[in-house]
Simulated scan of single mutants.
Amino acid sequence: MKIMYKLLSGFIFLVLLFSIAGVVIITNLNVIETVDARVGYDFSINQYSTNYERGAAKMQVGTYLYSQGSQAMGKQMINEGKEAMGQNRDYLKNTLSDDAALKELGEIERIQDMAMAASDEVIKIVNSPDPDPAKQQKLLKQELHFLEARVDALNLKLGTFVDKTQEETSSSLKIAQDSARQTVNVTLYSIVISLLIAVIVSFVAAKKITDPVKNLTTVADKVSKGDITEKVQVSSSDEIGDLANSFKRMINAFKVMEAMSKEDSAPKG
Rank of each mutant, 00 (worst) to 15 (best):
K2G: 02
I3W: 12
M4G: 10
F13W: 08
I25W: 08
I26P: 02
N30C: 07
V39M: 13
G40T: 13
Y41W: 07
F43N: 11
S44W: 07
I45Y: 04
Y48W: 06
S49W: 13
T50G: 12
R54V: 08
R54C: 00
Q60Y: 07
V61Q: 10
V61P: 01
L65I: 07
S67W: 04
S70P: 04
E80I: 07
G81S: 06
E83R: 12
A84M: 14
G86Y: 02
N88T: 15
N88R: 05
R89F: 15
L96D: 02
A100Y: 11
A101K: 13
R110K: 10
I111Q: 15
Q112Y: 05
Q112H: 05
D113R: 14
S119W: 06
S119R: 04
V122D: 06
I123D: 06
K124M: 14
N127T: 07
P129Q: 10
D130G: 05
D132T: 04
Q136S: 01
Q137P: 00
L139T: 01
L139M: 12
V151C: 09
V151P: 06
L156H: 11
K157C: 04
L158A: 09
D163S: 14
S170I: 09
S171P: 00
K174R: 09
Q182W: 05
Q182D: 10
N185C: 01
T187H: 04
L188E: 08
S190Y: 09
I193G: 03
L196M: 14
I200A: 13
K207G: 07
V213A: 15
T218Q: 13
D221A: 08
K222V: 00
K222L: 09
G226W: 01
I228P: 02
K231N: 10
V232F: 10
V232H: 09
Q233R: 12
Q233M: 12
V234M: 01
D238G: 00
D238F: 01
D238T: 01
D238Y: 02
N245Q: 14
S246M: 12
S246W: 00
F254D: 04
V256Q: 12
E263K: 15
D264T: 13
A266N: 07
